[in-house]
């Protein structure tokens, strides 16, 4: 299972005002709020929660808008219902891209594709697939990213 989330920091700066009263407390625990200092820290936390949510959503096929249920555990992992989900992020001044997996051994088996013309299928739930393998797609602002298993 793979989840990914890409955030265009310029788009986020225009679309979202995280300094709005009560905004952070709706989506981040007190511990997570203590890690926040700037845009990058906000959107890194958010991208990790979104990437982990995509794994859970795909496994359960349930919609839940519950960002407080996915919590920071370490710079490399987040927790949901006491289970650890592992993340890796690419942080630049322009975007943040986070990949989540259920076991860290999976990371070397994955590749990122940023070419949005890559053909893919959809399963019966509308979720993206390539060669019967689930892939994860995220897009925001100027960016688009797919994470998939490397083809041998």
């Amino acid at each position: 299972m793979i989840g990914n989330d890409i955030i265009d920091l310029r788009t986020a700066a225009v679309e979202s005002n995280w300094r709005r009263p009560n905004y952070l407390s709706k989506i981040f625990t007190p511990k997570e709020q203590s890690l926040i200092s700037d845009d990058q820290s906000v959107w890194w936390l958010w991208s990790a929660k979104e990437a982990v949510y995509k794994i859970i959503n795909r496994a359960t096929l349930q919609r839940r808008y519950a960002p407080l249920s996915i919590t920071y555990h370490s710079p490399d992992s987040f927790l949901y219902q006491e289970r650890e989900y592992f993340i890796k992020s690419e942080l630049t001044n322009e975007f943040i891209h986070t990949i989540a997996v259920i076991h860290p051994d999976l990371f070397p088996q994955l590749e990122v594709c940023k070419d949005r013309s890559i053909p893919y299928d959809k399963d019966e739930h509308g979720l993206p697939m390539i060669a019967n393998q689930p892939v994860s797609i995220s897009h925001h602002g100027r960016y688009w990213a797919m994470v998939k298993q490397k083809t041998i």
């Binding site: 009560n22 709706k26 958010w46 519950a66």
Partner: peptide, 26 residues
Amino acid sequence: NSANLVDVILDVEEKYNIVIDNESME
């Protein structure tokens, strides 16, 4: 955008003067 869904929730809270708890927010 999922990050803007928070704004929708906050706007609803402000407009109707209600508190949307986590259970409802889900």
